[in-house]
Design a protein around this nucleic acid. Structure first.
Length: 493
RNA sequence: CGGGGCGUGGCUCAGCCUGGUAGAGCACCUGGUUCGGGACCAGGGGGUCGGAGGUUCAAAUCCUCUCGCCCCGACCA
């Protein structure tokens, strides 16, 4: 019977996460320390993420391009705070073709420098602006401690890089793309996020301002899921990205950059999955429905498989990503466990009884509150008549997507503590992993550093108005001076 | 880089202390019986024990060196 269970989230969250990544065959460690091999199940999620995001980028006027992996070392050093920020985590190539290189090449940790050096060649006039490009690429950052998807030395991402005529336009772009990330997180990943500004200490190296989307994982640690930077004219100045403005004067362009990475897959896992395994929202599931045929005799096998094949074709034609599990080496029960571990949103059980009744049994991966509730301790099983099948499946996929978001939102809200005014209380909250802690802040880096030092919690974000508490905090949680703004504290990945 | 642990069929691990020439479970292959929540029986394939050196008649086991990995502490999407 109960063979080979996952460690539970309550027992050991980190072991639970690792086991899911491994058993759902999402990824594994490569022979090189800190790098990962993304297996088809994991890459399938990434491909669907890419498709959705790429469409959204195009809809907002961006085009894709590709810039090289190698960056001259001197480029990185041109923007002062950029070097400082990235120097410790650079991989540098010093030998090529058996010869020592005249100038070492940095393996891109991000591409601002090479991209803006090229933009400088392309721009003369305000008429050449804006430039709105994105690239899908891999980047390398020499990390000390790695976790699959959450932090690896090489990861896949997308980086948007734009150049604008005015500061206002750049700021609008930065916020627009943050909005795109938020929409993507909420409606595709079913992952609620806070939006807001990063403090100076968490700002991107070289940016004027960094905005982020922040999500709360099931262990109540925060995950920075995407960032959008207003770079001001910092890189334009470093790379002489200038244009002649409408009154004929030479001016530096205004840049933005924004990115999300394969880290999102880690966020997806830690947002929805449970002690039975991975849970993937329908919009990102490379298999949305799996058909498990059930039969005893040869005669039953014949009719069941025939029906299964019909159903398969019907759903496929309806645009549903469906799979027919015709493996004959596993019992149906074993297949149930297998697909639950892999997070497939809907399972169809199809046996002789169903064929006879001209219906099917659907078992959703998570409990759907909108459907008939199961008896206590039982799985939710929905009996669906064949004639209504296609419509019902599409409806259930949609409901499951919605339910996931609502569950995650309810969990985040239940683990958001507002109006914390006492530092001792805050310490205790952090200690017992209470979640997002809202409190006042005087704006000083000292207070921020003190909390990080003493509790390991950091300011995740200075939230946008929509996320702020009804009553504004009056004093800084740490020093007691008057509060400049409300901030959200949490331990983070 | 500091502390802890580990390298034995594809995977998880036993054997090492008390040297005698490699074993279990899972997975895999073949055949049969099974199949509505992790099937069973029978047969079978596969490792020279991270690497190098040493001690010994004999090394997975003892000694030396070495490489690699994992976990915990200082950076980060």
């Amino acid at each position: 019977m109960a063979a080979d269970k996952l460690p539970t989230r309550a027992q050991d969250f980190s072991a639970w996460y690792n086991e899911i990544v491994s058993r759902a065959e999402l990824a594994e460690h490569s022979p090189v320390r800190g790098c990962m091999v993304i297996r088809p199940n994991g890459y399938g999620i990434w491909e669907l993420m890419q498709q959705a995001l790429d469409r959204m980028f195009k809809e907002t006027g961006h085009q894709n391009a590709y810039f090289p992996l190698f960056i001259p070392q001197s480029f990185i050093t041109k923007e002062a705070s950029h070097v400082e920020g990235f120097a410790p985590e650079l991989a540098v190539v010093t030998v090529g073709g058996g010869k020592e290189l005249e100038e070492p090449l940095v393996v891109r940790p991000t591409s601002e420098t090479i991209i803006y050096s090229m933009y400088a060649k392309w721009v003369q006039s305000y008429r050449d602006l804006p430039i709105l490009l994105n690239q899908w690429a891999n980047v390398v950052r020499w990390e000390m401690r790695t976790r699959l998807f959450l932090r690896t030395m090489e990861f896949l991402w997308q980086e948007g890089h734009t150049a604008h005529e005015t500061e206002k336009e750049a700021e609008e772009e930065t916020l627009k793309m943050l909005g795109v990330y938020r929409t993507f997180a909420e409606s595709y990943m079913a992952m609620p996020v806070l939006t807001g500004v990063k403090t100076d200490s968490e700002r991107f190296a070289g940016a004027l301002r960094t905005y982020a989307i922040e999500a709360l994982m099931q262990d109540n640690k925060a995950l920075q899921a995407g960032t959008s930077h207003n770079l001001g004219q910092n890189f334009a100045k470093a790379f002489e990205l200038q244009f002649q403005n409408r009154s004929g004067e030479l001016e530096f362009a205004w840049n933005t950059s924004w990115g999300v990475s394969t880290r999102l897959i880690g966020g997806l896992i830690m947002t929805h999955s449970d002690d039975a395994g991975l849970v993937v929202p329908p919009k990102l599931a490379s298999t949305q429905l799996v058909i498990v045929p059930i039969f005893k005799t040869d005669a039953e096998q014949l009719t069941v498989m025939e029906t299964a094949e019909h159903v398969f074709q019907e759903l496929k034609a309806a645009g549903i990503r469906v799979k027919l599990d015709d493996r004959d080496s596993l019992s149906p029960g074993a297949k149930f466990f297998d697909w639950e571990m892999k997070g497939v949103p809907l399972r169809m059980e199809l046996g002789p009884k169903d064929v006879q009744n001209n219906s099917v049994v659907i078992v959703p991966r998570i409990l759907l509150e909108t459907e008939e509730q199961p008896k206590p301790g039982k799985k939710q099983k929905l009996f669906i008549a064949r004639p209504a099948l296609k419509e019902r499946i599409l409806e259930l996929l949609e409901k499951l997507q919605t339910q996931l978001f609502q569950n995650a939102l309810a969990r985040r809200e239940a683990n958001s503590i507002r109006n914390v005014t006492d530092y001792g209380e805050m310490t205790q909250l952090v200690e017992r992993d209470a979640g997002f802690i809202y409190a006042g802040w005087c704006g000083s880096a000292e207070c921020e550093a003190k909390v990080k030092e003493e509790t390991k919690a950091t300011i995740r974000v200075i939230p946008f108005p929509e996320f702020q508490s009804a009553s504004k905090p009056s004093h800084c949680l740490v020093c007691g001076n008057s509060s400049k703004q409300e901030v959200v504290w949490a331990k983070a990945y």
